[in-house]
Design a protein around this nucleic acid. Sequence first.
DNA 1: ATCTATATCCGAAACGTTTCGGAAAAATAT
DNA 2: ATATTTTTCCGAAACGTTTCGGATATAGAT
Lengths: 339, 339
Amino acid sequence: MTTTIKDIAKAAGVSVTTVSRALNGYSDVSEKTRKKIMTLAKELNYSPNTLARGLVMNVSKTIGLLVSGLNRESEKDQIIFSILSGINSSASESDYDLVVFNTNSSKQREKTYTQLCRERRVDGVIIQGIKTDDPYLLEVVESDIPCVLIDIPVHSDNVGYVTTDNVAGAKKAVEHLIELGHRNIAMVNGHSKAFVSKKRLEGYKMALEESNIPVKQEWIYDGKFEEHSASVVAKELLMKHPEISAIFCASDLMALGVITTAKELGLRVPEDVSIVGYDDILLASYATPPLTTISQNFYQLGFQAGQLLISMLDGKTDPQVITLGTKLIVRGSTTSKSF
Amino acid sequence: MTTTIKDIAKAAGVSVTTVSRALNGYSDVSEKTRKKIMTLAKELNYSPNTLARGLVMNVSKTIGLLVSGLNRESEKDQIIFSILSGINSSASESDYDLVVFNTNSSKQREKTYTQLCRERRVDGVIIQGIKTDDPYLLEVVESDIPCVLIDIPVHSDNVGYVTTDNVAGAKKAVEHLIELGHRNIAMVNGHSKAFVSKKRLEGYKMALEESNIPVKQEWIYDGKFEEHSASVVAKELLMKHPEISAIFCASDLMALGVITTAKELGLRVPEDVSIVGYDDILLASYATPPLTTISQNFYQLGFQAGQLLISMLDGKTDPQVITLGTKLIVRGSTTSKSF
DNA sequence: ATCTATATCCGAAACGTTTCGGAAAAATAT
DNA sequence: ATATTTTTCCGAAACGTTTCGGATATAGAT
């Protein structure tokens, strides 16, 4: 049997009100009875029922996690894991627990994200990895549930977001290639529904234009953020346009796929074609050649998201937008253009 | 305003009882009123309050996750992530949601695992990555909360576990080395508080003994499952005992550390010293040389744990012990002994 | 001694469900 | 027509908390 507040009340010879107030540190209970109640609670191995508490207080001290990609496919980049770790860290600093909803299953498709959140009465929700055209995204963002989005730019009364400066990051990557003497620089992007893809494309174009290099639409492909897809489009890219001497990829995973293809085509990386990735996943430094890439701190991304949401919930902050920086990591997959 | 069952009752002109029973598919409500209630529920955008439901039904449809290592340090092996994915998959097939408790923070130390579980009224809990001598482990296992442990061998009335055959796995690894002609085979183990370490040591010894190779205690070190620690002990090991021609490591991460050390000492891998790891983490195939290792399916480990717990909760199964197999993956870090 | 202020305590309602036992209404049998 | 069964509905209690408003007791002031 689990012991309740009533059991303590009976044992202590007081009312449940008094037990409740004693346990919660109110001042209108004498030191003597407080002591008695406290020790009794220990003895009886009492633990409060958060369901009951949540019911009456209308707060659950939980934050919901709407993450896509907590599945087999994304084992290769540890991105989601890092983000989760960050969120977890910030949650554990406060008293919040995390409940993860799964958005991938077909089962859940019947329920909108809003419903999931409301049923569990989460205090707020962090959303990651959901396409910008997801029909349910709009709904939850327009609801009154406090939201923090990761890499999705929506800012309103009760939703903020955290992201990295993707334009500047991509620009840095391409500028690096330009400085190495490259002018025929292609891009393997993610997909058009991703905010980060748009921004990275923007940075790519900006870097080229500032160096007076014309942007060629036919040198820009989408690789769906997948290693294999990138591999496929890279083949077409490299075969159709042998003048290309460098490729900027919107993710490391895709860069790995591109490298594979380049090798298959008999091209040496970086001597024949330089490749720069994006993310700086763990594999980047272990690849052959080690990948030059734009590093972003995913742990920090998650941590900041958690911090922001929690301070919103505590009423300390209004929804904000937080932008983190990136860093160019030069490794072995880029070199100066040979003539 | 969130709509409740009462609002629907009022709007439909029936009692809350009827609404509840209609929504839950009981047969004692006429088709006409059921229809009316259903459409009304849709219109009013009703979603049930699981807190209230949990309170009265005494089930929360959540399973707790007690995982250590959801933090920055373990980004390098994607092990925990894979396990989480597996658990998530199995949970999403049923109607369970996951709530993750954090065991690393100092804050939580005040609360025992049992308390965490009881407060949230989780229906069951999956425990992973906790040392066998953790004081709170015993408590939760002895409580009446249904448990499934990962790689911790406790089997009782309401706790089962899933693991891999570590003895056989380790044996396979060492036998592989023996077949390559090695006889001076050292081991870098994890730590003595880990069940898997004990078992892998057992397999190591068994393989040696079956080939009539004496076990030397001074060739067995603990590397704490950390890359750096393994690196350190390997240095001592290799310098003190230059006759060692092969090292079996209880984890890939440690194997990577050992390789680093070997290289630093001017030893070639695998020509001078063969190294086999354990786990087959993602990095294993990208390392130089690619790591020969024992592969275990962590996703499956998590998935089976979830399945087991859920079928326990549904009363379909008694607590069981599930043992998964392993596979030897031969790559480039092992070769036949040179004479 | 009475009056006022303060320190402690408590009863009861509320949160949103589910469920038991029974009542009312409708359908069927006699 | 009445009696019986079946269908459909409902009132009230229960789950374990928190909290409002007020009650009682104790202390201090006059």
